[in-house]
Amino acid sequence: MRQSTTRVAVVTGGSRGIGRAVAGRLAADGCAVVVGYGGSEDEARAAVVEVTGRGGRAVAVQADVADERAVAALFDAAESAFGGVDVVTHAAGRMALAPLADLDLAELDALHRTNVRGTVVVAQQAVRRLRRGGALVLFSSSVLGRPFPGYGAYAASKGAVEGLVVVLAEEVRGRDVTVNAVAPGPTATDLFLEGKSAELVARLAAEPPMERLGTPDDVAGVVSFLAGPDGRWVHGQVVRANGGLV
């Protein structure tokens, strides 16, 4: 494995939505980027082309985030391609919405496999492999602070993420590695918009004092801060990037 002075970022869920915006922003910040993706190879390759077309370096690697062998191979690929790992952003996620009384428990199992087990698996590799000066950025959700009906199972999975952040912040003590989470509010991604009427989207957009939906780029800017030099004194925190939604 060749050594590199370039910072290297692994972004899960990097083929779409917030993850894709994060991959592009970290590449613009000077990172070589590994675009981790679950199912859409075409979109992952398009994300790589976006980065390389702007003069950056990127590769796409498929991995089921809940499969520890696949995730280990993802990190192996990052080290082989670029020499190490300095930033890990775990943006892969799943959403299943239903009132608790009507919740399909098979959907609950699938949700928790991705959002809870997947977060633990990716974070485990991150804390094993991040170099000094590195950053791990996980994803929670602002529904923990502003609950919406139907989001119970999803909110429960993101509560697990926030619990993990504060524990990991202690476990990496002395390593010069930061651990934080970003908790977006309503953000205009396919995952958020799917199945919602125009009226519901408009109502949700009006909820924050900024009176609009967030964009993937809004969230990517927060990740960039946490992963970069200006975010080194932010550790063990959940940053609610939601336009003032409380």
Rank of each mutant, 00 (worst) to 15 (best):
G145M: 09
D109W: 04
R129V: 09
A110C: 03
D102H: 11
S141T: 15
G118I: 06
S140R: 12
D109M: 01
A110D: 10
Q125M: 02
E107W: 05
V143Q: 06
F139W: 06
A135G: 01
V122C: 09
A106D: 15
D102T: 14
L105F: 13
E107G: 04
F139M: 15
A135S: 07
A101M: 07
R129N: 02
D102C: 02
R146H: 15
L100M: 14
A135M: 00
Q125D: 09
R128L: 15
D102R: 08
L138F: 07
A101N: 05
L144M: 08
L100G: 09
L103P: 02
T114M: 02
L111I: 07
A106Q: 14
V143C: 00
G118T: 07
P149A: 14
F148M: 13
V122F: 02
D102E: 15
A123I: 05
G133E: 03
N115S: 07
G145S: 12
V121E: 03
R132T: 12
D102A: 14
A123Y: 00
F139E: 08
L111P: 12
R117I: 05
L108V: 13
Q125W: 04
R131F: 02
R117G: 11
T119N: 13
R117W: 04
V127L: 04
L105E: 10
L103G: 05
L138A: 06
S141P: 10
A110F: 11
R113F: 11
V122A: 05
L111T: 12
A126Y: 02
F148K: 10
A123W: 05
Q125Y: 01
S140Q: 05
G150E: 04
R128K: 14
Q124G: 11
A135N: 04
R132M: 07
V116L: 13
P147F: 12
R113H: 14
G145D: 08
A123N: 01
H112Y: 15
L100V: 14
G145V: 13
L136Q: 01
P147E: 10
A110S: 11
G145W: 04
P149I: 06
R129Y: 12
G145N: 11
G118V: 06
V120I: 10
L105K: 00
G145C: 04
V116F: 13
L103Y: 13
L111G: 10
H112D: 14
T114G: 10
L144S: 09
R146Q: 05
V127F: 05
E107F: 01
V143T: 15
R113L: 09
S140G: 08
